[in-house]
């Protein structure tokens, strides 16, 4: 559905995207991760047909965005991070207006508006002016607006960042439902637990280049055995742990002041015992050793900090 090859984008002399590559097959929910300024929103704006690009190719459903902008835009529903609305309109009026733009009759546009308001949980606010909506309500209304023309591809820029936990859960459920309905969804977000809950695959970008493009399930296998977090009684210098690294079960050790993350070389159940023994021998006081399952957050931090 989405194929991005060697994408470059310049803002004056600053190269924001440096040969970005990734692809998203049809019917997938794909997470798009990266720190602030990495180029996520720039990429989404290009995909949505709102921002021109230099070198490279951006294809949506086989169509090059720069060559068939309008046809591409009709296939896309885009929810910006802070969506802007005509504040003087009521929620239902706005959705009906968008429906009428795509030549739906007044009756059909009204039905579609009610259906979408129900979907995003705003049916009780259908007669309220959008200007009085909270940020969370605006985010939901934005989702409804992006869905008015029943697009095959949804681009969501931080869709849950403004929502309370309940609202977030509802939006994630909605994304799951939309996936079941066959939509392809690209989510740009900082909330990694959301990505783990709904995404099938993920792309991580750093400074305008792709540093990871993989399936979530495959990622956990690639990462290998789980890690162990050791909580120390005091702050520990990396040099003090030098001898610990020679312990057979440790393949990698990442120090973080009063704790450290140990990456085991195998899934041996004795690893924590071996670590405790080694720490006692080195006379390093510690509170405990906790096994940590592989999370996307861990992988994200490792990738972003250049550990892998």
């Amino acid at each position: 559905m989405i194929r991005v090859d060697g994408l470059e984008k310049e803002f004056g002399s600053f190269l924001a995207l440096k040969g970005l590559n990734f692809h998203v097959p049809k019917g997938r929910v794909h997470g798009f991760l990266g720190h602030n300024g990495a180029g996520k929103t720039t990429t989404l704006n290009i995909l949505a047909g709102f921002s021109p690009y230099g070198k490279g190719s951006v294809q949506i459903d086989g169509m090059e965005v720069r060559d068939a902008k309008q046809a591409v835009q009709r296939k896309i529903g885009y929810l910006p991070e802070a969506p802007q609305f005509y504040e003087y309109m009521r929620a239902k009026e706005l959705l009906m207006y968008l429906g009428r733009i795509q030549k739906a009759s007044k009756l059909d546009a009204g039905k579609r508006a009610e259906e979408l308001l129900r979907l995003v949980g705003l049916e009780s606010a259908s007669k309220r002016k959008v200007g009085g909506f909270s940020r969370g309500m605006k985010q939901r209304l934005g989702m409804a607006c992006a869905l008015v023309h029943d697009p095959a591809l949804l681009l969501l820029d931080e869709p849950t960042s403004a929502l309370d936990p309940e609202g977030r859960r509802e939006v994630l459920e909605m994304i799951k439902k939309l996936k079941e309905a066959g939509k392809t969804i690209l989510i740009s977000t900082h909330i990694l637990s959301d990505v783990e809950r709904v995404c099938d695959s993920v792309t991580m970008i750093k400074n305008g280049t792709c540093i990871l493009d993989a399936d979530i399930a495959a990622l956990k296998e690639i990462q290998g055995p789980a890690g162990y977090r050791i909580e120390f009684v005091r702050a520990i210098k990396e040099a003090e742990l030098h001898d610990l690294q020679s312990t057979a079960c440790i393949s990698e050790l990442i120090c973080e002041e009063e704790s450290c993350l140990v990456k085991a070389s195998n899934e041996d159940s004795e690893v924590s015992l071996l670590l405790a023994k080694a720490l006692s021998e080195l006379k390093i006081p510690f509170h405990g050793i906790q096994r940590q399952e592989r999370t996307l957050e861990e992988l994200y931090i490792r990738r972003m900090n250049g550990y892998e």
Binding site: A48, F50, Q73, R74, I76, G77, Y78, P80, A82, P83, Q84, F85, Y86, Y97, L98, G99, I101, Q102, K103, G142, C145, A146, V148, H149, P151
Partner: peptide, 13 residues
């Protein structure tokens, strides 16, 4: 142009 055209354009404006 302050982002308000995003939804109408995708709807076919």
């Amino acid at each position: 142009r302050n982002q308000r055209l995003v939804f109408p354009i995708h709807a076919g404006l």
